[in-house]
């Protein structure tokens, strides 16, 4: 049984006949102890899809799914209270902006023990002990003296460590990290990634790593999901995705990284931008930007094809040499 199973997840915003689909028929699963990387550019729906798993989509957004199961329990069918008990304790989430994700009015201790108070029993003394333990686990030096600090007294890296401590407070089975290092400096970023991977290994959690940084995912993830304009366009084991991409978008994304153009004069840029709410093309969503688009791509939308974990949404998936199959 998968830890998390998502099938045909759709999130729509707006009303009327033509709502905007931020997430469009997304399906994937996360196993215990697995690191899944979700990559995509802004507007690809990678954050919205994970927010919808956490039940954090606010009113005008509508979440629909064929299956949205955590350890076999249907998250959409269960009561609001039960779902809240699961999200937060069993599924935890870390956000991009550590500075604004912590409430500036309360101390670090108060904020971490809040989750403990809600989801676990134990008295005040136990909670304090547990907070110290957690701070120590996330590598905050001298945790006891940090209990009474306020978020503004912490640096970005420290705040993100506190956020991670909050997230793992109830020993979650699945941790969703939404751009956990984007707002941090390079050397601090490396520290936080190390910390996340260490914790993941120690606790054998499932980790969903959402980021736009392909290289980061290449180094950390076991399995990768590439999203474009709300759809999953390619999934597969990390090394396969990065060495032999099958979807033209994945290929273009990889090629546009400076690292892929070492020694070249110019970068291989993908022309155009991700379509927004009002300019979604007909047919394959990538067709206006795709160098291999055919007439069929302009009319029909391809579906996911392929076996097992290696799937691609393209009529003419790329072969080993990076050329479209006929």
């Amino acid at each position: 049984m998968s830890l998390l199973e998502v099938n045909n997840l759709t999130v729509e915003f707006g009303d009327g006949d033509n709502p905007f689909r931020a997430v469009d028929q997304v399906g994937y699963s996360v196993e215990k102890g697995e690191i899944v990387g979700i990559v995509g550019e802004s507007g690809s729906g990678k954050s919205v899809s994970s927010l919808s798993i956490m039940g954090l989509i606010e009113y005008p957004g509508k979440v629909k799914a064929d299956t949205l199961k955590f350890e076999g329990q249907d998250l959409l069918a269960m009561s609001e209270n039960k779902r809240r008990a699961i999200t937060g304790a069993e599924i935890a989430m870390i956000f991009q902006e550590p500075m604004s994700s912590l409430n500036p009015c309360y101390t670090v201790e108060y904020q971490i023990s809040e989750a403990l108070k809600i989801h676990q029993s134990g008295d005040k003394k136990w909670r304090r002990q547990r907070v110290i333990e957690l701070l120590d686990q996330v590598g905050i030096p001298d945790p006891e003296s940090r209990l009474k600090t306020y978020p503004h007294q912490l640096s970005g890296g420290m705040s993100q460590r506190v956020m991670i401590a909050m997230a793992i407070a109830c020993d979650p089975k699945l941790l969703i990290a939404d751009e956990p290092t984007t707002a941090l400096d390079v050397t601090i970023q490396a520290q936080i990634v190390d910390l996340l991977l260490d914790l993941q290994k120690q606790k054998n959690m499932g980790l969903v790593l959402i980021t736009h940084d392909l290289a980061l995912v290449a180094e950390a993830a076991h399995r990768v999901i590439v999203m474009y304009a709300g759809q999953v366009v390619e999934t597969g084991p990390a090394e396969q995705i990065f060495s032999k991409p099958k979807h033209p978008y994945t290929q273009a994304l990889l090629r546009s990284l400076p690292e892929s153009s070492l020694g070249k004069d110019r970068l291989d840029a993908l022309p155009g931008v991700v379509p927004g709410a009002f300019d979604r093309p007909i047919g394959c969503l990538l067709n206006p930007r795709c160098p291999y688009a055919t007439e069929r791509c302009q009319k029909e939308q391809p579906t996911m094809q392929g076996e097992g974990v290696r799937q691609v949404r393209c009529f003419t998936p790329l072969d080993e040499a990076g050329r479209p199959s006929a």
Binding site: P271, V273, G276, F278, D279, P281, I282, P288
Partner: peptide, 15 residues
């Protein structure tokens, strides 16, 4: 709906 994606500024009712 236009298929010109290089310039969302020219398309759609959002202008």
């Amino acid at each position: 709906m236009s298929e010109q994606t290089t310039s969302p500024a020219t398309t759609g009712p959002q202008v």
